[in-house]
Design a protein around this nucleic acid. Sequence first.
DNA 1: TATATAGATCGATGTCTGTCGATCTGGAGG
DNA 2: CCTCCAGATCGACAGACATCGATCTATATA
Lengths: 121, 121
Amino acid sequence: MSGPAPVSLELTPKQKRPAGVRCCEPVVYPDVERSQATRMAEVAKALGDPIRLQLVDVLRKHAGKVCVCELVPLFDISQPTLSHHLKKLRDAGVVDSERRGLWAYYYVTPDSLKELSAWLS
Amino acid sequence: MSGPAPVSLELTPKQKRPAGVRCCEPVVYPDVERSQATRMAEVAKALGDPIRLQLVDVLRKHAGKVCVCELVPLFDISQPTLSHHLKKLRDAGVVDSERRGLWAYYYVTPDSLKELSAWLS
DNA sequence: TATATAGATCGATGTCTGTCGATCTGGAGG
DNA sequence: CCTCCAGATCGACAGACATCGATCTATATA
């Protein structure tokens, strides 16, 4: 048995095909445009690190209330490394920050996760 | 003006603090456990590439019906590179594959996106 | 002005990633 | 047995990434 054929040409492996012709022509396409995929992948990539994902988790629940100095001891990494992760998240548009005096407060950018979240559902 | 203080100690920058004491003690914590964050980050990382995200998009809508040879011409990359991306997705548990004869059919693993999707919502 | 602190930036380093061409593997058909 | 083809693996390479210690910047306070 040869199993169901690709949706396009309904060929099975056992059928003859002219030499030089692909097994099938592409008929299915992604519904997501390349530019949209690039945007969502950028967000997904920013979330593709356990520390950054936990950072977003904390910030979502305490938006604008958590200073960086309070985040440092939560993770077993140095302050420059944490700063680097926050920059990654900011570059991806996932978070933004506000300085008050010596301290910096981060918050999750509203709706920055919406597109990816909707696509995943 | 000094703005709202961190949630923990309610200190403002102008308040005195004993030397050697942090600006604040950590009081907020992520709700997501480290192991859970690692799992979700692994999935997010796999989706953190436009091509892989579009691949998942195609496979979700034509599960088990699209052979790899049909995927290759959809993207402007070589066959080994596409194979590499599919392996990345498989290593993350996002997709799995089935061989029938010469051809390989990929499908999105059921529920593999559920945890991340739920967290994002 | 001088000191102390929060946080960003710099430079270095080892690892991981995306990409390719070339090659290997295994099933199909003559 | 030999050939052809789909797809996976290999080896190489350039660029990106996570991490650190050291340093810089800017603010607060004495």
